[in-house]
Design a binder for these strands. Structure first.
Ligand code: FES
Ligand code: FES
Lengths: 147, 147
DNA sequence: AGATAAAAAGACCTTTATATCCTTTTTATG
DNA sequence: CATAAAAAGGATATAAAGGTCTTTTTATCT
């Protein structure tokens, strides 16, 4: 719903790393996957992709792992969504007609458009830093019963 | 995104039939699928399901086809969504954590919740009749370039 | 009654998303 | 330098969604 599972996993991975920024260490995929309750190898793939995209970073070898740089805290969540899911949301119709457009609107276009732009706007203004702050302060969680 | 393609097809099928209510005839699957630009056999399956659920009706044999009764005009779009996609949307987390709950919220829970309830509320108050009226009056369309 | 046209039903196929496994490469450390 | 830890990469597996094809059933017309 809305974004793919893959994308949700990716965001959570990045946010988790962001909460560890102060600890100044590399975090192994095993720890991340266990804490977030995400299949390890699958998450590894997703994080590797985000390394290629320079969202996060990694080092191999003993004491290696994934980590983020401070810069990522200012990155809008939408950036990660588009990296993983693409920007197809812009042109997909709620009712699955060929193309979503205001010139050839489906019966729910107007209503749906309001929500869609709202969600996109929200994802554009929310940053990784904000999300990780909430988690760090215990107001929100990155897995079910991670307390 | 949001609802499945299958579900979008189903809604469009029902709405199409609703626009033909006055014509008082059975509409063949070939016509519906062609007009809506949906794979015929696939749409047939979906409509068969909706016949079983009594949303629409059908008669076999020559001059048979699908049709709706006036009663369906008052049906909320959400009913069809739940029949086809289920009510999983209630418990799915935006970021794909095990379960969406306000007691164990993910970092985007609050924001997402607002949009989700808005969409659900909208789908609950929109009826098949309203959608078909818009199409009938040429304000909206059930396929790309159906004019 | 028989022919016909249409939906119903079910088996099957394809694609995409999700998940796992195994091998290779890199690198810190003793 | 050997070793072990860790990510990277490639191949494969599984599940779900989406789509196609064929056969069966049945209403209607002649
Ligand atoms: S045309 Fe359907 S949502 Fe825009
Ligand atoms: S917990 Fe993530 S959306 Fe509710």
């Amino acid at each position: 719903m809305i974004i793919s599972k893959t994308c949700g996993y990716g965001i959570r991975g990045v946010v988790y790393l962001a909460t560890k920024l102060e600890e100044d260490r590399k975090v192994g995929i095993h720890e991340i996957a266990t804490e977030l309750e995400i299949p390890q190898h699958f998450l590894a793939k997703i994080l590797q992709e985000l390394v290629r995209k320079k969202v996060i970073h990694s080092v191999k070898g003993p004491h290696g792992g994934f980590y983020v740089k401070e810069l990522v805290l200012g990155m809008p969540v939408l950036d990660i969504v588009e990296m993983i899911d693409g920007d197809g949301y812009k042109t997909r119709c709620f009712m699955a007609i060929e193309e979503c457009s205001s010139e050839n609107p489906c019966p729910l276009h107007r209503d749906f458009f309001v929500f869609r732009s709202g969600i996109v706007k929200m994802l554009k203004q929310k940053t990784i830093g904000e999300l990780s702050k909430g988690v760090f302060e215990g107001q929100s969680f990155l897995s079910y019963r991670l307390n």
